[in-house]
Simulated scan of single mutants.
Amino acid sequence: MDPLHPTMNHHNLTSTVERKFVQLQYLGTLTLCPGYCGRIATPDNLLSECMACPRGTRASQKNSLCEPCQDFLTPYAWMYLAFMAALPLIFHLTVIDMIFRKWRRKSYVILQLSALLEAAASAVITMAFFRKDDQFRMRFCGADRLADWYSVFHNPKPDYIHTLNCSQEVVYPLYSVVFVYYFLSLLLMLICRGVSAKWSWNGMARNALLGGLYQYPVLLAVHAGCAGLLYFIFPYVTIIAASVTSAMHCSLIKKQTLWEILKGLFSSIHSVIVVVAHWILLGFGVLAIYYKDSVVDILKIAPSVLAPLIIYLVTFRLTDPKKYYDHFE
């Protein structure tokens, strides 16, 4: 008999199934499922064999029953999704900035706004797909270990010969939601920028469109293979990347004196936006590591976003290549 989907009469069968499980376990006829395998309820109030839990459920550690995900996303999980959603947006904005900023001001502004609109629309539609109530809240199964992201590598062999295939999205929906977001971002980018390029611009607009297309295979491959690793290290990746790019932005100023650097950083709207964006990214990374519910505690760590800029201003004289030319001649 086909197993019953966990969302159908699950709550009506839960108590009966758990009592049945306790009885069978007490009699020694039923054991806990190995690995990430679980059991689901059948229409006749019996339990299935150990198998992969259906999407949106996870095997309970106490009785191996596949239970629906009930926990709301934690602030850290939300930050991880924000990090993954920001990757294509940052790339889009960077490519548009490199191509259009000095070429055509109107096109530059329109394309930047288009990229922001695409990202916002993709996020809202993705949330609508995965929401569990009218407040756009998502429930997830938790992600406690790196192995939770790679259940395909943890299929058990109860008899040491045959593999029991229990591959599933243990961390639902943290894995699938990113794929949906990237697909919607790609679709909206093709629609919005394709129409805009046809109406307003010549071949230069194709560079921005093609640059955006190139990133998605890379992002999808990185997420498919490294999602679990990124989940645990993304705050540090954000801090390192923002610090390095902040130093690069300062180093592009021609005259490397304290006054000229400060003048170059804050003398134009574009440069101010870049500096503030680096501060936001740094604050985001620090907050993901030291998240506190108290506003006072958050304000205490806020000044840390200035650290990379201050370090550069203090040490740039020591890293001027001209000071070391004599040692290599």
Rank of each mutant, 00 (worst) to 15 (best):
P3H: 06
H11N: 11
T16R: 04
R19D: 12
V22P: 04
L24N: 07
L24E: 15
Y26W: 14
L30A: 07
T31R: 12
G35H: 09
C37T: 03
G38H: 01
G38E: 05
R39F: 02
R39W: 07
T42Q: 09
C50M: 06
A52E: 10
P54M: 13
R55V: 13
D71N: 12
F72I: 12
L73A: 06
P75K: 00
F83K: 01
A85E: 11
A85Y: 14
F100A: 14
R105E: 10
K106F: 14
L116S: 11
E118T: 14
E118G: 04
A119C: 10
A119V: 04
A128G: 08
F130Q: 05
R131T: 11
C141Y: 04
R145G: 15
S151N: 01
N155W: 02
N165A: 02
V170N: 10
Y172P: 00
L174R: 14
F183I: 11
L186R: 06
W199C: 11
S200F: 15
W201V: 14
L209R: 14
Y214G: 15
Q215N: 01
V218L: 07
A221C: 08
A221R: 04
G228A: 08
F232M: 05
S243W: 08
I253N: 10
I261N: 12
G264Y: 01
G264D: 09
V275K: 08
L282H: 08
F284A: 04
A288K: 02
Y290E: 13
V295K: 07
I298K: 13
K300R: 09
P303I: 00
S304W: 08
T315N: 09
F316P: 01
P321V: 11
P321T: 06
K322V: 02
K323P: 07
H327P: 00
